[in-house]
């Protein structure tokens, strides 16, 4: 039977379509499947820890008493990191996108991307050998002059390996991610908006304030949330830098611990139900990260209409 080239190629195209759409769907569902498997595994491994006799667990307290302090520690470290990193990252991104000369901007952007590629163990080593000793004098000063604030209650740590130091290291680590994403968003500000602002007599700062920032707000939020995700899950740097201990309010004394670092530090020598407790801690971290991402999505979705992007 004779056939023409058009229908032939058409049927081949349909086959291609089918294969491609199937492949894409498999790839897409694979992600969900992996996520599902991780969740099932964590839940299954966690259950013995939740019902275990407190005497068998670390410190002789029930799992919930133990994990509470770790959750607080994780959130404190991430909060310090975000508070320090966000303003700097947005500033650097703005400088690269709107202030720096073109050539300098390219170089700077490249260097910021490079920072994101440094393994966390390097940041940890730097934090413990350079940053922590250097921060001891400021901590002593803080304890003497601002000791009435619970966050800075003395005596200051003699090693400098405190929650604040860990937060600073985390801030340095998440800054590149937040910077790169914010920069991309700032560069997408419609040129017409910027020019309109300038034409109305706005200074450059006013232009950034009325045209760039409102447009970029959801983007900044998602950039910050990605940074937060990394800060919550960061393990090695915290394990090296933080002098962990029981939960305390002071940020300049040793103490507190994060979930991820606790898992890494206790896992190699744990056995039995103590291992289950670590998996349960992992499950909690999993849930926190998931919640953070969902909140971020919600914020982005809520602000979309007002961003000026449409």
């Amino acid at each position: 039977m004779s056939s023409n080239a058009l229908t032939d190629s058409g049927s081949a195209g349909r086959a291609g379509d089918k294969i491609f759409s199937t492949a894409a769907m498999v790839a897409g569902s694979l992600i969900l499947f992996v996520l599902f498997c991780v969740a099932v595994f964590l839940v299954k491994e966690s259950i013995p820890a939740l019902t275990a006799d407190p005497a068998d667990l670390k410190g002789g307290v029930s799992f919930f008493a133990h994990i509470g302090a770790l959750i607080v520690g994780t959130l404190i470290a991430a909060a310090i990191a975000l508070l320090l990193a966000t303003p700097v990252a947005v500033g650097v991104a703005l400088f690269i996108s709107h202030y720096a000369p073109r050539r300098l901007a390219q170089g700077l952007g490249y260097i910021v991307d490079l920072l994101a590629a440094i393994p966390s163990v390097i940041y940890g080593a730097w934090g413990v050998t350079v940053l922590a000793p250097a921060l001891v004098p400021p901590y002593v000063w803080l304890a003497e002059n601002a000791g009435w604030i619970p966050l800075f209650t003395g005596p200051a740590s003699a090693t400098g390996k405190t929650m604040l130091t860990a937060g600073v290291v985390l801030a340095v680590m998440i800054m590149p991610i937040v910077t790169s994403l914010s920069r991309e968003i700032f560069l997408q500000t419609p040129k017409l908006h910027e020019e309109a602002a300038l034409a109305l007599g706005a200074t450059r700062w006013e232009m950034v304030r009325v045209a760039v920032l409102p447009f970029a707000r959801p983007g900044i939020v998602s950039a910050v949330m990605l940074g937060l995700g990394r800060a919550l899950g960061e393990t090695m740097a915290i394990a090296l830098v933080l002098s962990s201990g029981p939960m305390i309010a002071s940020l300049i004394q040793s103490g507190n611990q994060t979930i991820a670092a606790e898992i890494a530090l206790a896992f190699p020598e744990s056995s039995g139900v103590q291992t289950n407790a670590l998996f349960a801690a992992g499950l909690v971290l999993f849930v926190i990260t998931l919640a953070v991402n969902m909140v971020a999505r919600w914020i982005v979705a809520r602000h979309k209409e007002f961003s000026g992007a449409n």
Binding site: G59, T159, S243, S244, P246, S254
Partner: peptide, 29 residues
């Protein structure tokens, strides 16, 4: 206990190299 008891918590560091390094850097440690 393989975990340092929380009742006597003080400064801490990871692994043998971590504690030795911290002590070497801290007078009086």
């Amino acid at each position: 206990s393989g975990d340092w008891p929380g009742a006597f918590a003080s400064e801490s560091a990871k692994g043998t190299s971590g504690v030795v390094d911290t002590v070497a850097k801290t007078a009086g440690a």
